[in-house]
Amino acid sequence: MVAGVPGIGLSGVFYILCGLFMPVIEFFSVVFGKSRRHRWKLVMTQFSLSAGILLASWGFGLLVGMIVTASPWVARSFRSLNDINVLKVWPFFLSLATLAVVLGSLWLFNQVSAKNRRPRRAARK
């Protein structure tokens, strides 16, 4: 999220993934001799926050589900609620797929633009 830009949304998923991958990146940085050990504190803090967000979201989904199913009237209103946890796995994977499509499109766009640029440069020469 950026101040002034709405919601957690896809950028939230993006930063959570970045946070989860930071220890891996840092590990390889150390292995390949890039001495960045002093950054482990930051890396582990952000990793913990990312993992904490996922865990808390799952717990919140469970809590809401328990509240909803505990009341027969509310449970009737939330007709599609079959299991206790309202947070399903498929929206998470849908978000990951959307992120992959957005970033993949960007990568593809950059490749096409780079290819188009090369012949133009050659023509100028």
Binding site: G7, L10, S11
Partner: peptide, 22 residues
């Protein structure tokens, strides 16, 4: 900026959030 790694990814997801998520 689309040539600047990471910044381009951030910009892309923010645009998505700004339009689609909104």
């Amino acid at each position: 900026i689309r040539q600047v790694p990471y910044l381009n990814s951030m910009a892309a997801v923010i645009v998505w959030d700004a339009i689609i998520a909104s």
